[in-house]
Amino acid sequence: MTSTEQGPTAVTDRALGPDLARGFMLLFIALANSHYFLRGPSVLGGFPQDGSAVDRAVTWLIATFVDGRAFPMFGLLFGYGVAQIVRRQTGTVWATRFLLWRRSAVLVVLGFLHAMLLYVGDILAAYGVLLFLGVWAIRWKDRWLFVVALFVLALTALPGDTSLSISADGPDAAMLPPDLWTQFSQRILVSPVIALLGPIGFLPPFLIGLWAGRRRILERPAEHLRLLRATAVAGVTIAVLGAQPVALTLARVIDRPSRDTFNLIGPLHDASGTIGGLGYAALIVLIATRVRRGRVTEAIAATGQRSLTCYLMQSVVWAIVFTPYLLDLSDTLTVATTALLATATWMLTVVLADRMRRADYRGPFEVLIRRITYRTGVSSRPAVRR
């Protein structure tokens, strides 16, 4: 009996743009995640408010270009990847759904372990829950993908105090546990909440990614240049402008507004960031059409091809550096030095991913998720079609 489940895309068939986008945006993921570990007498939006002028400048840069902007781009690429999987399957709709549910299950389990052992702010389980529910959208008509995406985006833009960008809370015991017992007892309560609520914010870019994947927009940019250019210009512009009320406040350029004002500008920061994620993806794909494949480009693309492994590598660094019963540097590092740590961590993953590429090795977690998804002994070496 011939299987209707087609395996992962061969390396030689992969488009440069999406891999380059994933690889580069892992830098933004590192910058976005690491500053939330910092302590201080006053913390706002994950940034200590007692830093130097350099810290304030770095805070503005991260709040403007990074926070709430990188994760939506990954949501888009996640939906895009699901559309690619669906397109390759030749069996029934139910067979495809079961394949995606297996992928969902491994993301949830891996995300739970990741949250318990390394980083409580894990997004893998949230992606798994999103995929578990999102399989019902793979047969939706295009207009419904947009209608639901816009509806949920509008909901997230409503005034409220749930935005992390305006939170005055510092890292809690789940984030910085003093011992293993506290770590497990606190995180087992927090992790399910993040996994269940996270898909709400990721849903709009995921649905847009499904639509874009059906048309292979990121794989065939030459056929969609006008759309990509418009998305890049509009998305990045909206993201930058929409971030300014929060970014200027966090950088202490303007005085902290009232609570009611905060409840307006926080959701604005998040909603504009979702649109910005689409703009970032379009911009990087456009850049990929212009650059030549050199050592740096190939290394960053290799990081994107191993984004799951590289994302987990980052969490190992955060756990070692910030956990109180390990190095405990959350009171020592500043916003600026933490940004340097995040950049260095990303560069290390780029070097390691490039070494794996040269050794024709997929990456351990990419191998794991493919084996479970496709129920085959997928080789640890990238498939090359000749």
Rank of each mutant, 00 (worst) to 15 (best):
L308T: 11
V58Y: 02
A63V: 09
G209K: 05
G23L: 04
A53E: 02
R290W: 01
G40R: 09
A299R: 06
L113E: 01
V86Q: 02
W346C: 11
V109L: 12
A339P: 15
L27S: 00
G134P: 10
V106Y: 05
Q49N: 07
L189A: 15
S34R: 06
S165E: 15
T274A: 14
T59H: 06
D328F: 13
A271R: 01
G273T: 06
Y119F: 14
T231V: 14
Q305Y: 07
P364C: 10
T4Q: 09
V246P: 08
S379K: 05
Y361T: 13
R103T: 12
R292G: 00
L210M: 08
V108W: 08
T289H: 06
Y119E: 00
P221N: 14
R102I: 03
L99C: 14
R295V: 13
A149V: 01
P199N: 04
V253Y: 12
V236W: 02
V246L: 06
L131F: 13
I123S: 00
G75F: 00
V253F: 05
R226P: 10
Q314Y: 04
R371H: 09
R229K: 14
P257D: 03
Y325F: 15
M1L: 01
T334D: 08
A302S: 15
I138W: 03
R229Q: 14
L308H: 07
A301T: 04
D67V: 13
T261L: 04
V43R: 07
R370W: 02
A115Y: 03
L27A: 00
A359H: 12
G213Y: 02
V58D: 04
Q49T: 06
R293S: 03
R14L: 04
L76G: 06
T373F: 07
G266N: 04
L341H: 08
L189W: 14
L77F: 08
I166M: 02
I275S: 01
A70K: 08
T334A: 00
V316T: 14
S163G: 11
I254H: 11
A115G: 15
R386M: 08
L189E: 13
A319Y: 10
R139G: 11
S258K: 07
L329T: 13
A83F: 00
F74Y: 03
V378F: 03
A288M: 07
G273W: 00
V296Y: 11
V233G: 10
A344V: 15
A232E: 05
P257A: 01
L158W: 08
R375P: 14
R370N: 03
R357C: 10
L44G: 08
A319W: 07
P159G: 00
P382G: 02
F262Y: 05
A383R: 14
R229F: 09
D50W: 09
M175L: 15
R187C: 15
W94R: 11
